[in-house]
């Protein structure tokens, strides 16, 4: 039975592409301005000839940057890689109701890749206690159809 449970998880890894983050890459949380996190937002990259997007997000007391004051807008059916870090305390980055769910730890970079299959809105919740206004920390991801994706808001 125990073997079966472990096998289930391995199956998820291999066959369903259910990956767990686990990279080791540190960053100085007090000096994010010289890194790509200094200009957080959606960036366009080309990998293996295909257009993909990278999203750099800072989680701070008590907002996602971007995400809170303006939604993170990305196209559907495209590979999107998120890079998340925190300049202050621990936060969570949970796309509500999905398994996109990671910790944001000062000094570490969380990285995960996903493809949003359809155009819709998702809520982002900070799910790790980060201070007295933790409960107001929320954001939004707006997935738009690939054809309607507006590239004028991309950052360099």
């Amino acid at each position: 039975m125990i073997v079966f449970f472990i096998a289930t998880v391995v199956y998820g890894f291999v066959a369903m592409d259910l990956k767990v983050i686990g990279n080791y890459e540190t960053i100085d949380p007090q000096n994010l301005s010289d890194t790509p996190f200094g200009t957080p937002g959606v960036k366009e990259v080309t990998k293996n000839g295909a257009t993909e997007y990278e999203v750099y997000v800072q989680t701070l007391q008590f907002a996602f940057l971007p995400g809170t004051s303006s939604p993170i807008t990305v196209p559907a059916d495209t590979r999107i890689t998120f890079y998340i870090t925190s300049p202050d305390v621990l936060h969570g980055f949970d796309v509500a109701g999905t398994n996109l769910n990671t910790m944001a730890i000062p000094g570490q970079i969380s990285k995960f890749t996903t493809i949003f299959p359809e155009a819709r809105e998702y809520g982002i919740v900070c799910n790790e206690y980060c201070g007295p206004a933790h409960h107001i920390m929320e954001g939004k991801i707006e997935v738009v159809p690939k054809s309607e994706f507006d590239k004028s808001n991309l950052v360099e």
Binding site: I2, F5, V20, N23, M103
Partner: peptide
Amino acid sequence: HQYADPGISVGFKFYAMATTMLLLL
């Protein structure tokens, strides 16, 4: 407890999972 953490490699998380499952015994 740290499956969602950056900075700890998947291999060690896997080892922890295996020992956790063994605790079912």
